[in-house]
Design a binder for these strands. Structure first.
Lengths: 160, 160
DNA sequence: GTAGTCGGTTGTAGACGGCAACCAACCAAA
DNA sequence: TTTGGTTGGTTGCCGTCTACAACCGACTAC
């Protein structure tokens, strides 16, 4: 019996509110927060940067979206020159997506913009609290991701 | 100079990821997390519960959405019987929105469902960490809300 | 080779949000 | 009291993000 129900409610309410606020901020301040990146760019480019060249489906899995969505977004990013694509030498169906130099630059720029913005928004925070919060948030997100399997929800026990 | 740029980047990245994961969870598990409530219900009903009867525009402001959106959502909630609406006695243009009994019940149910879900997702957390995280998240959300004014962005310093 | 599977693309649809136009009620000033 | 401007809300239209389904070409197992 790890958590008080009160704490669970409080935490989930807090998360819901934060998610809302986050969405809000990122839609309002899109230009000044994303820079060169289209709004969805972050979610795709970060896995590319972290895990290197990979195929569309892997990317979709990692960023938690449907393959069809990833396909379209990758197309858009490719048109903007932020990612590059080459056919998978081992599999004629697949292609491999890679972060381009421009993509890496855009990512860095976005990161800087965000950090700058966070500087004003988080005045009044001290380093320790912020670092602690980072850790807790990372842990939380991991657990959340684990609790909500990437796909195939609501396909109950009835295996055909 | 309160925060290291490294910490700011880490924190913003963490928030972005959490926002994403949160959205993801709430769309996947909508049924089992919201219960009677439509997906947007939470955001409107909570302010109603906390601050009592109020008009549509106030509600929109509090939940950080456009008045037009609030108007539509309130209409939907009214049709489902979760809120009630009466004309403002002091102003013939406005109406006052109030949480109905069914609305309060739905809110409680949603709260319970979430808490239950959080119970599994957050196994491995102890009370202290969770409470600490709650506090930090609340503080963070407040600061975020403060940094991103509810409306009228990109209208810089040039006061007329 | 043929049948089934897998990776990706495209079509369609729905939820959510904003902006602009509009209407009705309010208010202030002539 | 009429008139002009303001305010609260609704509606129409659009853009974004997402999923699901149908499809196509390439792979693989038999």
């Amino acid at each position: 019996m790890p958590l008080t129900s009160q704490t669970r409610e409080r935490l989930t309410a807090g998360i819901a509110r934060l998610v809302r606020a986050g969405r809000h901020v990122s839609s309002r301040a899109a230009d000044s927060l994303y820079g060169e990146l289209p709004s969805f760019g972050w979610a795709l480019l970060v896995p590319l940067e972290r895990d290197g060249e990979q195929r569309c489906s892997a990317l979709a899995l990692r960023s938690g979206i449907d393959v069809s969505v990833a396909s379209r977004q990758v197309t858009a990013l490719e048109r903007s020159g932020l990612v590059e694509r080459r056919p998978d030498p081992h599999d004629g169906r697949a292609s491999l997506i890679r972060l381009s130099a421009a993509g890496a630059a855009a990512l860095a720029q976005t990161r800087a913009l965000r950090a700058e913005w966070a500087g004003e928004a988080l005045a009044g925070w001290d380093e320790d609290d912020a670092r602690l919060l980072s850790e807790l948030i990372e842990r939380l997100t991991d657990d959340l991701g684990r609790a909500a399997p990437p796909a195939v929800r609501s396909a109950p026990v009835t295996a055909p």
